[in-house]
């Protein structure tokens, strides 16, 4: 069967005479001299596009990090500096304090954000949007401001102290201690955790809960058997970020008191007061490695991508 030709119809479909001289007809079939394949050309283009970020990142992160690692071994303890976080009693204690605050922050934040996040996602009532806006307002507060918020609540002129003094005559002040730091980290972590939980709760299929209820599950069983398992990836990823932030953050502790014995403060003290750059380098490298590993593990466990901490 040959080509079908019905010129009459065509004339109606393209009524205009040959419209323009602009159409490329002639040179389009010229064969390029080069014999590189399409794939190679594209790969070359992509590498070129990646180059600026690659150069910047290598120059200002990869090389400095390698340098940091090397300098960590140049102190008077040599490479043993990397073990000192375990072997040195003071460092080990601050490591324990740091991890303790971080774990506690993670647990408390997840409970608070889990309850409020699911609640706000499930019940749309007037004012819901305002509540969400207020809960996520401190999202971008830097650590120093968080520290100041803790001082406003639990500092020497803070609300808690004033109220407690008026009620009991006893002025409760805990801002300048581990407890204050813990409060600051929870404050810092709630907004982003609530956002993560809400996003995950939105994706939960309400039919699963209906199915569980139709099978006779109590509201409590529904929470345990359906909602919490459904939110597990979000909990893991959000929890990892809480943890990583609490381990690595510096601004809050700095604002509250230089005496708080957590690792970032120890590193800062080593660097500035003791001028022990090698030890500061070793400790911060270990701290960085620990945080990165926790996030990487959580990412694997959650299966998805764990959004980075702020």
């Amino acid at each position: 069967m040959g080509p079908r030709v019905k010129p009459g119809v065509t004339a109606q479909i393209f009524p205009s005479p040959r419209a323009s001289s602009c159409e490329t007809r002639g040179p389009i079939f010229s064969v390029p001299e080069e014999t590189t394949t399409k794939m190679q050309r594209e790969t070359r283009r992509l590498i070129l596009l990646l180059l600026p970020a690659g150069i910047f990142f290598s120059a200002f992160f990869l090389i400095p990090m390698a340098e940091l690692f090397l300098i960590g071994g140049t102190g008077k303890e040599g490479w043993a500096a990397y073990a000192s976080i375990i072997t040195n009693r003071n460092y080990f204690n601050s490591l324990l304090a740091t991890l303790g605050v971080a774990v506690l922050t993670t647990i408390v934040t997840l409970i608070i954000s889990g309850i409020s996040g699911v609640f706000l996602q499930r019940h749309k009532f007037p004012g819901n949007g305002t509540l969400v806006a207020m809960l996520t307002f401190p999202l971008a507060f830097p650590g120093v401001v968080i520290g100041f918020m803790v001082i406003m609540l639990a500092g020497r002129q803070g609300l808690i102290g004033t109220v407690s003094e008026a009620l009991t005559g006893d002025k409760i002040v805990f801002a300048y201690s581990l407890a204050g730091l813990f409060m600051g980290y929870v404050y810092f972590s709630i907004p982003r955790t609530i956002l993560t939980v809400m996003a995950a709760a939105e994706k939960l299929d309400p039919k699963l809960e209906e199915a569980a209820r139709s099978l006779g599950a109590s509201p409590f069983r529904v929470v345990v058997d359906v909602i919490i398992p459904g939110l597990k990836p979000a909990f893991i990823s959000a929890g990892a970020i809480c943890f990583a932030t609490a381990v690595g953050a510096f601004g809050t502790a700095f604002t509250l008191a230089a005496k708080i014995n957590v690792l970032p403060m120890v590193i800062y003290t080593e660097f500035t007061l003791s001028a022990n750059i090698a030890m500061a380098a070793a400790l911060s490298f270990v701290l960085g490695a620990v945080t990165w590993i926790v996030l990487a593990l959580a990412r694997t466990a959650a299966g998805g991508t764990v959004a980075a901490a702020g």
């Binding site: 080509p3 079908r4 030709v5 019905k6 010129p7 119809v9 065509t10 109606q12 479909i13």
Partner: peptide, 8 residues
């Protein structure tokens, strides 16, 4: 079908 036939 109509289109292809008419455009040739």
């Amino acid at each position: 079908d109509t289109l292809l036939r008419s455009l040739q």
